[in-house]
Design a protein around this nucleic acid. Structure first.
Lengths: 101, 101
DNA sequence: ACCCTTGTTCGACAATCATCGAACAACACC
DNA sequence: GGTGTTGTTCGATGATTGTCGAACAAGGGT
């Protein structure tokens, strides 16, 4: 089963935005931006592993992440370079945690 | 009927992204960015006026646009300054039409 | 007053989506 | 080989969403 990691230029902008327009997925992206490559299991945001797997699939198919197998785990990382090149400012704008004020 | 134009800082990022993650709404935002303040009716993107009204409502309630009455029309404009201040780079990243290559 | 134009609101409907438990697959380790 | 860990996949389900036509409201003309 190929991991379905599309060319970012082939992904419609709306798909990239839709992938980011979910709270759980945004938390995953933030964790990846801070912690670098991480195992799927490290994202514990109060959803079942089935749901988490679903969200990681959405992120991957939107071109936001890459996944590689490592033993029994799977390591996920942000495609930050490509994203910053194609959508400069997008990740920065979205990643920075905003103060409640 | 108040037009429900929220303080941008009170709108969750996911709502802003979700508002932009639709093809029709993105076309509206692009048209507004290019043409400035425009009447609702000027956005003819192949949907009924009911649907168009719905999309404009989503944009307004996500804090992306402001609307004011002008005779029988309603003029809509992008809240670009506020958006650029709160999410620098977001609009630019999303607005630029990308070549199919 | 009448009509036309411009938008909004109201169901309704189909499609998509987030979520879950259970079943399955792959790998490691003993 | 068996057991445990880590993820994925498969329905199912409830919620959200995009879409429409029809009805309604507000203004501007004539």
């Amino acid at each position: 089963m190929e991991p379905h990691e599309p060319d970012l230029t082939a992904v419609p902008v709306t798909s990239v935005l839709a992938a980011l327009a979910d709270d759980v997925r945004l938390q995953i992206v933030r964790a990846l931006a801070e912690g670098g490559e991480s195992a799927c299991g490290s994202f514990d945001f109060g959803v079942s592993k089935a749901t988490r797997s679903h969200h990681l699939k959405v992120l991957r198919e939107a071109g936001l992440t890459r996944t590689r197998a490592a033993g029994t785990s799977r390591l996920v990382r942000l495609r930050r370079d490509e994203l910053d090149k194609l959508y400069p400012g997008l990740l920065d704008a979205v990643l920075t945690q905003r103060p409640p004020a």
